[in-house]
Amino acid sequence: MSKIKGKVFVLGDNIDTDQIISAHHLVYSLDKPEERIFYGRFCLSGVPDEQSGLPQGNIPFTDPDKFESEFTIVVAGKNFGCGSSREHAPFSMQIAGAQAVVSPTYARIFYRNAVDGGFLIPYESLEDLTENFSTHDEVEIDGVEDTITNLTTGKTYPLKPLGDVADIVNAGGIFEFAKKAGMM
């Protein structure tokens, strides 16, 4: 896990799991390839239109006729992933093609699901960075230096080191981590 580069999608505070993947979409099978792609299509479709893709708004994370998003990194306000325990939330982001989220704070179940399932990396920023990014900016996360750079503006911001969970992120999820720890 060294560098992640791509377009950024910007969101506000308290993006809950119903907004990430609305409850009525949870009926698709995650095991069947022809059904799971719908999680990519509907990922983040529950966000109110004017708050989807800030600062402009009205930008869908995934185009309604596509299954994958053009965005690789999500930068959001505080308390990202609050609400239900549905693992479909980080999973849908992975299916859509996102590789990392950056937020000052996470709801803990989302954070844990993202890490333990090895879906995407939830980086914590030291402060709310949403003002410094516009949806569609080119962005790079450096997982060694723990920084995020807005390549469009040329500015770099520090991220918190992953700390305790780095071992699980590096292992690729809780199963791989547990195998290394001799727990299974």
């Binding site: 325990s85 549905r86 693992e87 980080p90 179940i109 844990r112 699901n113 333990d116 399932g117 999820g173 809780i174 199963f175 547990a178 727990m183 299974m184």
Partner: peptide
């Protein structure tokens, strides 16, 4: 509350 991955892990290990 936990996610499905953690639950799947518990199902097999009890931990």
């Amino acid at each position: 509350g936990i996610g499905n991955t953690d639950a799947g892990f518990i199902m097999g290990t009890g931990k």
